[in-house]
Design a protein around this nucleic acid. Sequence first.
DNA 1: CAGCTAAAGTATATGGCGTATACGCAAGCG
DNA 2: CGCTTGCGTATACGCCATATACTTTAGCTG
Lengths: 205, 205
Amino acid sequence: MAVADEGGAEALTMSAVARRLGPYTPMSLYRHVLSKDGLVDLMLDAATAEIALPPVPGPDWRADLRAVVMETWEMAKRHLWYAQLAPTRPPLGPHTMRRTEFQLRVLAGQGATLGQAVAYAAVLDRHALGSAQQVAEEHAMRRRLGLDTPQRLTEAVTAAQGLAEQAGCELLARWMSAPSGPDMDEQFEISLTFLLDGIEARLNP
Amino acid sequence: MAVADEGGAEALTMSAVARRLGPYTPMSLYRHVLSKDGLVDLMLDAATAEIALPPVPGPDWRADLRAVVMETWEMAKRHLWYAQLAPTRPPLGPHTMRRTEFQLRVLAGQGATLGQAVAYAAVLDRHALGSAQQVAEEHAMRRRLGLDTPQRLTEAVTAAQGLAEQAGCELLARWMSAPSGPDMDEQFEISLTFLLDGIEARLNP
DNA sequence: CAGCTAAAGTATATGGCGTATACGCAAGCG
DNA sequence: CGCTTGCGTATACGCCATATACTTTAGCTG
């Protein structure tokens, strides 16, 4: 997890992990893990374990769901690899399942059918993971394209702005020259509210 | 694109593409494309070009936004690799930018600031791409795990259900034994409505 | 038509990846 | 003492993107 925290999902190689653990060869890992996918499964579940859950749904279902999603979001910002790797593996780790179960209990407690509860939980998770993934990919792209220095980044933005103007995208070019608006965290909370509002309206028609 | 349509993003190798084009070697592609990333950029923009846009925002902003998002969703279901590859590249293809510009124009026409418009467009895109990615990963996982026959799939589901019971996840286990609720398309439309409702409320406070 | 050029394709090689297979080595236990 | 069991290693394979250097082909020009 430390390797992936620092270098992103694409730095997570068996070699890098073995090296991090000491003077080991990549193959030594296979004594403890079936495959790289197995390692990833363990990582994903360990990260999910960092999401604090109330022991039991409380009186305020909105607060419960909001808390789970916000905790997930915070965790995914700590571990940017999470959003990149999670969709590549089945969500069957014990902590991962416990988290889903909690969401289902909260929703079922409000009169949702099991099918609705699964659907709403899926929508909320997509929101959390989708947003985190966007943050992660932005970081990864910066690393890939070598935009580590502010100067290189400015160059890239200027180039992009030129492309936008050339394509006749006036508003886009304007925004690129002077980005504004809510940051990612604010966007996240706003649209989480949208989703919870929508769920609430459907729960109490 | 045909290669990726059939085999998913992980089947998209330079060899596979060259072979598909005729009796060519992988290296021949590099006469036409700078790198594999360059090829992916072209693919992403070509796929984005399939999204039909009104020439100009119409009187009904909700219908406009909804149409763009639904068209994106339909396209991403046709090209399951799109949602996997799009987040790995900057969204700077001409068609991609034109599409964003259209969203911004629609929102700016309703009095949104440029910053708000960018944020709302981002939220809608995350929803479309996040949902498509989930579908894509489900397919990819089935391919990877060799769950092509119904029997293998049933086995896997039964195993997962056992895990859920073992972890004390009653609701989850129950749902796995008898999945129900809105399918992906219905989920998509429902939560798209949630998001549009939220945006509307913010536009007309 | 001869000859040059530029485009298109190929051959070969490098370095990185996950991992199958076979081996070495130490600790513990009968 | 010898055997298993657990852990680490060495080597090799196949697949990937791609750098580099070569050959072939088509077309234009003098």
